[in-house]
């Protein structure tokens, strides 16, 4: 890029009109694309955050409700009948998967009890991993934005400062009025990067711990349910 052009593009920006839009508009196209990319990242991060918050809250509430009904002494057959059509949360899905395997083993033509215990555990394990996968989908985006956002913003800043120094060299004028607008717009890129990255990091940590907690809860329920079914198998067999 011709330094004279840089000077031309930077110099008209006087300190009087340092609005956000002018800052963006006078930036180099690389800085511009960095800014837009970071803005999109920020939108995406917040979308994921809202989505995950809703998902986790709903899941936790459903789990509480399910555990209450499960331990209330209601017959498991009945519970299975109400839930089997649409297992709407992870613990229900776990329960339905185990019950389906149990029923299939007992109601078939040949009773296959010998390996039932193992099969039920396997089924529940698969269901847990599937549910956890569903819970932590897109969390990687948060982690990526959180760690890479500042760097991307910094890249935009470095580029902007480079161009502003080029403009200094071109105009042979080191007054602050020449340097300041370029640096301001360059720093704007870092600002956007931080704006995107800080919530991303916070949300990632929060959701990661949430996923961990819910996975443990699922595993605990699976173990308990497996124990109950194992007792039933032994009693019937």
């Amino acid at each position: 890029m011709n330094p004279a052009d840089v000077a031309q593009s930077v110099l008209p920006l006087t300190s009087s009109d340092l609005s956000l839009f002018t800052l963006f508009w006078h930036a180099h196209w690389i800085v511009k694309s960095v800014m837009i990319g970071l803005l999109v990242c920020s939108v995406w991060v917040w979308a994921i955050a809202i989505d995950k918050t809703v998902l986790f809250t709903r899941t936790r509430r459903a789990m509480d409700q399910f555990e209450q009904t499960f331990w209330s002494g209601q017959s498991l057959e009945e519970l299975y009948r109400t839930l089997s059509s649409r297992p709407n949360h992870s613990m229900a899905a776990l329960f339905v998967a185990a019950m389906r395997e149990w029923k299939r083993s007992f109601e078939g033509h040949a009773r296959a009890i010998a390996g039932l215990q193992t099969r039920i555990e396997k089924v529940m394990e698969v269901t847990i991993s599937r549910e956890v996968e569903r819970l932590e989908r897109r969390l990687l985006v948060l982690a990526t934005v959180g760690s890479a956002g500042p760097f991307v913003g910094l890249f935009g800043t470095v580029w902007g400062i480079m161009t502003s120094f080029q403009s200094i060299a071109a105009s042979k004028n080191t007054s602050l009025a020449v340097v300041a607008p370029g640096i301001a717009e360059a720093l704007f890129a870092t600002a956007i990067g931080l704006v995107a990255a800080i919530p991303a990091t916070i949300f990632y940590n929060k959701f990661a711990s949430e996923v961990n907690k819910q996975a443990q809860r699922l595993e605990g329920f699976a173990d308990e349910f497996a124990a109950i079914l194992s007792r039933q198998i032994d009693e019937r067999g």
């Binding site: 956000l20 839009f21 991060v45 917040w46 955050a49 989505d51």
Partner: peptide
């Protein structure tokens, strides 16, 4: 829903910042 809310929020913040 999350995307819509997020986009709307960013637009609002940008407008305010402008």
């Amino acid at each position: 829903a999350g995307s819509i809310i997020s986009t709307a929020g960013h637009a609002a913040v940008l407008l305010y910042a402008l």
